[in-house]
Write a protein that binds this DNA or RNA. Structure first.
Length: 279
DNA sequence: CCCCAGGTCGTCA
DNA sequence: TGACGACATGGG
């Protein structure tokens, strides 16, 4: 067990808001999450974060990265309110909310699965994939399955994927797995791209449109200037500003929130989807 | 039985 | 370019 003291973290909102899909809430109100190589249990004790894992090697560093603890959100939020004072209510509500830094391959597959799908169903599908192809990990007497590496899943067939309830997205997943395996597509190249090129590169794959690509860039690459506009953000913009089209939403957020548009969109999504006072 | 979900694709004008 | 239906699946 390790402890990170005195941090400003809303663990519940950060875990359950819909950015990650594979976690369990425990009876003691802690959360068990599955990272790329280990299982971790997280619990807030006042302002301290208590962390347990089946593998404690390098654990604090990994969690600091995963939960984005070393980014100065206070400063960013202050700038956002300077850009748009009317957004202060939302920003205040989102104090302590973090963008989770997700493993690239899992994030890619997760958001391909997410299209025209429901969070509970996305979780189920990702769990099915992990059970079939991922490594087994035992943590506190329970069995968990890591998300598979490309090597572990590369021999799957479209029929296999369909059986795991991926639906019509089976062919998209199959295609991109094969492209990665044949070195025709490389997630690591995106690290050195600007957002515009990264979007183009991701969207050159079937099954990845603007929304999915934006989610991947925001959640795996921390490109906070991309705009994952989904149904909830559309509802927010429609109800708040009577703005309808994706194009107009993009223009509006770009003008107002500039380099933090992605983060602000995530705040809108979170408040609209998860907070009853804004429904 | 209809509607919808952190959308995208193919088609047709 | 823009509109529109289809797409698997399961829950409300």
């Amino acid at each position: 067990m390790i402890k990170i003291k005195n941090i400003n973290l809303k663990l519940d909102d950060t875990i359950t808001c819909g950015q990650i899909f594979r976690y369990t809430k425990e009876i003691d109100n802690s959360y068990t999450v599955i990272l790329s190589d280990r299982v971790v249990n997280l619990k807030m004790d006042e302002c301290d974060l208590i962390i347990k894992s089946n593998n404690e090697e390098n654990l604090e560093f990994i969690i600091r990265d995963y939960l984005d603890l070393d980014r100065n959100y206070e400063l960013i939020n202050k700038k956002i309110v300077e850009y748009d004072n009317e957004f202060k209510l939302i920003v205040d509500e989102c104090t302590g909310f973090k963008i989770i830094h997700q493993p690239k391959f899992e994030c890619l597959i997760s958001y391909i699965v997410s299209q025209n799908n429901r969070v509970s169903m996305i979780s189920k599908v990702l769990d099915n994939i992990s059970r079939k192809y991922g490594k087994e990990v035992i943590f506190e007497g329970k069995i968990y399955y890591l998300f598979p590496t490309i090597d572990e899943i590369k021999d799957c067939t479209i029929e296999d994927l369909r059986q795991l309830k991926t639906g019509f997205r089976d062919k998209y997943i199959y295609e991109i797995i094969n492209k990665i395996n044949n070195n025709e597509f490389d997630l690591n190249l995106i690290d050195d791209m600007d957002s515009e090129n990264a979007l183009k590169y991701l969207m050159s794959n079937k099954g990845i449109g603007e929304k999915v690509a934006s989610c991947i860039l925001l959640f795996s690459y921390f490109k906070t200037d991309v705009y994952p506009i989904d149904t909830w953000v559309k509802k927010y913009m429609k109800d708040t500003y009577n703005i309808d089209s994706i194009k107009d939403i993009r223009q509006y957020t770009n003008n107002i929130y500039k380099e933090y548009s992605g983060l602000c969109i995530q705040y809108m999504f979170h408040v609209k989807r998860n907070k009853s006072w804004h429904k």
